[in-house]
């Protein structure tokens, strides 16, 4: 279910809407987490926990340090899913 970027993005959109009440229409690959979606570093900590539940894999906070946009999050998820 998390094989391609489109699936990951739609899954992630659902999570962001549920957790932070962002507008689903604003969640695009280019959307900047803090500037466009008002997701701050504390939210990011909660998001990492939630993504761990989703992927069943651990995402190191360091992985997330370079994350700026929704597209970066999708890439990060895709990367951990590819790892065995």
């Amino acid at each position: 279910m998390l094989n391609n970027k489109d699936d990951i993005l739609s899954e992630l959109t659902g999570i962001l809407v549920e957790m932070f009440e962002v507008d689903a229409a604003d969640v695009t690959a280019d959307a900047h987490l803090s500037d466009d979606l008002d997701i701050d570093s504390i939210d990011a900590v909660d998001l990492i926990v939630r993504l761990k539940e989703l992927t069943g894999k651990k995402i190191a906070p360091e992985e997330f340090k370079s994350v700026r946009t929704v597209g970066d999050v999708v890439d990060a998820i895709q990367k951990v899913m590819a790892e065995q």
């Binding site: 957790m19 932070f20 009440e21 504390i42 939210d43 909660d46």
Partner: peptide, 11 residues
């Protein structure tokens, strides 16, 4: 009181 810490409550 009784409000759990969550991103939505903080917002």
């Amino acid at each position: 009181r009784g409000t759990d810490e969550s991103p939505l409550a903080a917002r």
